[in-house]
Simulated scan of single mutants.
Amino acid sequence: MIGCMCIHGFTGAPYEVEPLVDYLKEHTDWEVAVPTLPGHGDELKLKGIAYHKWIEHAEEELKGLIDRCEKVYVVGFSMGGLIASYLTVHYPVDKLVLLSAAAYYINPKQLFLDINDMAKDAFRGNLADNEMFVRYKRKISATPITATLQFRRLVASVRPILNQVTVPTLIAQGESDGVVPPRSARYLYKNIGSSAKKLIFLKDSKHLICHSEERDQLFHAILEFLKKKPA
């Protein structure tokens, strides 16, 4: 049995990776685990939660998969990519997939374009239909500053151990991502220690890469990578 764990991002929930999870379930017989990190989910309750609690929860889920499965893959989206990298260093993970992984965050140029689109939609009276506005309005108001600091601490703690990631790694990044800039993917590709690593960019994809119009192309590449036998 093969196990695959998919980890959502900061202030997110399993819905962020749900299209990929559905794809993997449709095309494989793998056990797919999708944990909800402490304080996350449909209702955010992040106050007072330290970043190591997010890691510990993912660790417990991973240990269960390792006990039940012969091989285990880990997929991490955004902050989940940093957690996935940490797990890969400390546990017997066979392959790693990083999606819009937040080694760096906030892409000023793209964020300006997204805000400009929001302003246009607001002027037309269509702001409620703007995907970026709808997805992030609630998050901004429900995220305490202390939680953001914990997110930054997590990123700072994982960056120095990226060179200890030695398993085959696939890194995917949207070029139109206003939250995580393309340089984050390049940084990961440069600093991850694996000799078997691949970097792909999706031209029109924004941050929620699993919900992008290019998701079919992405999911095919992920499954092909995970199923490929080592050379």
Rank of each mutant, 00 (worst) to 15 (best):
Y73G: 02
K206S: 07
I7Y: 04
K71E: 11
E70C: 07
T146Q: 15
V180P: 14
V158H: 10
I49H: 07
A196G: 13
Q173E: 05
Q150H: 12
I140Y: 15
Y91V: 07
H207F: 11
E60Q: 14
E213C: 07
P108M: 00
S85L: 13
E70F: 07
F133R: 05
V97R: 06
L44F: 12
K197C: 08
K95L: 01
K139V: 02
Q110A: 00
H211W: 14
V74L: 04
G178D: 00
N107L: 04
I106D: 06
Q150W: 14
A196Q: 15
G9A: 01
V32E: 02
Y86T: 05
D121I: 02
H207N: 05
V180E: 01
L154V: 02
E43W: 02
G64T: 04
Q217C: 08
I55R: 15
K227T: 06
L162W: 09
A50H: 14
R183L: 06
W54A: 04
D121Q: 13
Y136M: 04
V17F: 08
A103K: 07
I200V: 14
K197P: 02
D42T: 11
T36L: 04
L149R: 15
K95C: 10
A172I: 10
Y104M: 05
T88F: 15
V158F: 12
S205A: 13
T143Y: 12
G125R: 03
S141M: 11
K25D: 02
V155Q: 13
R138S: 09
D129F: 14
V155H: 10
D121P: 00
V97C: 05
V155W: 02
E26R: 14
L87W: 11
A101T: 01
G174D: 09
G178E: 02
E16C: 01
L82C: 03
T146A: 15
A13I: 03
T169A: 11
W54T: 05
T148V: 15
R215V: 10
